[in-house]
Amino acid sequence: MSFWGFLASVLPLELAQGLSVTGRFFFKRKATIQYPEVKPVPKDRFRGMFGFSEERCIVCHSCAKACPIDIIHIADHFEEVEVEGKKRKKKVLDRYDIDVKRCMFCGLCEEACPTEPVAIWLTTKSYETAAYERNERLYFTKERLQSWDGVRAYPGVVTPAEGQMPGDPTGGSGEPER
């Protein structure tokens, strides 16, 4: 420290030195990404918009319990289903709502999901969920969660509406590597 202090007092050129730093940056490559035209590539683990698969869901409510802010609302009822000749009671999902406007995208619901592959996940890379009205447009029922009505999918991400994504929670196929 004292060395630098000494040097600064001897050489009054530090202002020019500062100018040279900014001057050099003048010719450097720019960091700007022209967003709507060029989209930054989210990483594979990026916690983006929700994906949900009703057929994988076993209605265990784990995600709703794991959610720190209780934005997953699940309602279900039992139905008699005939499986291999035996009558079984099966939970049927009535309602699976996520209040995305309050979501903090922590991913705990995905971690809590016991199914394999998970029925609720966040790594879909799509982040363009902006809406003009938040109460209606950012409240996702199970139908909207699967159709992604109102979400602009990231290029390359298969939305749940265009067929499920068995075994591939990232939803993408062959994303460009950064």
């Binding site: 900014t22 001057g23 940056f25 003048f26 010719f27 450097k28 490559r29 720019k30 960091a31 700007t32 022209q34």
Partner: peptide, 10 residues
């Protein structure tokens, strides 16, 4: 513009 270029922006 000049400031932006010095600040690695466009």
């Amino acid at each position: 513009k000049i400031l932006a270029y010095m600040q690695i922006r466009i």
